[in-house]
């Protein structure tokens, strides 16, 4: 374990971007937990006389059409956005890794069919699929989570399947079987620990994608509804005022979205370097 930490330290020293990304991701999580109690203004209370003020010392990110503080709303939205993304990704990771690893190890006809199905699914316009699902199941937050999880699922299945597949006949798996390990032991003790690092990278990258998807759905008016603060909705509300030059309504929630996705993406790239055992010395 200490070797891993030492290696992580080594990689981070040579790669400060990952360190910054890790710091950013931690900050996001802190904001998600404590954000709503830290904000300077009530994120939902309207104050019409102060409507549509540009950014100032009092309202850092300006105010919206109902006079609500955009800064407070952006901070308060962190919790919901991260929660949606994290739940969706955990759901699809748990289901996808299991299905994928199982199919990849068993191989044969089942594996081939699952593989083909996943390929077809992945090339399908998944965002459209998510829209249709939210429409069918009802316009609620839980359904955004489910829809996002479902459209992430093929990526995990394919990933776990491919990772297990290349290792299925590798020497150490055959050696494990010759050493008397049962199939469950081979998968759990040998294969999964070896593919987890790569999966961690995938999870981090997918978190970013899930945030974008969820925000996209709410931007369209699906799922989360106003006045709940959520980045996609904040952008959607601000969109009406962009042609009249009220840039702050769109820019700040948009930046928040972008930074969140950026953090998780960079973190994923950094994790790839840290967890790759071949690069450890």
């Amino acid at each position: 374990m200490s070797a891993t930490l030492r290696h992580a330290g080594y990689v981070l020293r040579g790669n400060p971007v990952t360190l910054v990304a890790g710091f950013g991701a931690s900050l996001l999580i802190v904001l998600a937990i404590f954000g709503p109690s830290l904000v300077p203004h009530d994120p939902v209370a309207s104050n019409v006389p102060n409507a549509l003020l540009p950014p100032s010392a009092r309202y850092w990110f300006g105010t919206d059409q109902l006079g609500r503080d955009v800064f407070s709303r952006v901070i308060a939205a962190t919790r919901l956005d991260l929660l949606i993304a994290a739940s969706a990704v955990s759901l699809s990771f748990a289901a996808g890794a299991t299905i994928g690893a199982f199919c990849g190890y068993v191989g044969g006809q089942l594996d081939r069919w699952v593989g083909r199905l996943v390929d077809v699914l992945m090339a399908f316009p998944l965002f459209v699929l998510a829209m249709a699902m939210v429409a069918a199941f009802g316009n609620q937050v839980e359904n955004i989570v489910i829809a996002t999880a479902v459209i992430n699922l093929p990526f995990y299945i394919r990933f776990a399947r491919a990772e297990v597949n290349v290792r299925r006949n590798i020497g150490w798996v055959e050696a494990a079987r010759a050493s008397g390990n049962s199939h469950a032991q081979v998968v759990l003790r040998f294969l999964l620990p070896n593919i987890l690092p790569a999966m961690a990278v995938q999870i981090s990258l997918n978190l970013g994608w899930a945030i974008l998807n969820a925000a996209g759905l709410s931007f369209l008016g699906l799922g989360v509804r106003p006045p709940t603060p959520e980045w996609g909705i904040l952008v959607a509300e601000g969109a009406r005022f962009i042609t009249t030059g009220k840039w702050w309504l769109v820019t700040f929630p948009g930046l928040a979205l972008m930074l969140a996705v950026l953090c998780f993406n960079l973190l994923g790239d950094g994790l790839r370097d840290i967890l790759d055992p071949r690069m450890r010395t």
Binding site: G171, W172, E174, A175, P193, N194, P277
Partner: peptide, 12 residues
């Protein structure tokens, strides 16, 4: 095995 690098679990 032939390839001793491949025949050892990298995590063991």
């Amino acid at each position: 095995f032939q390839d001793h690098g491949e025949s050892l679990n990298p995590r063991f």
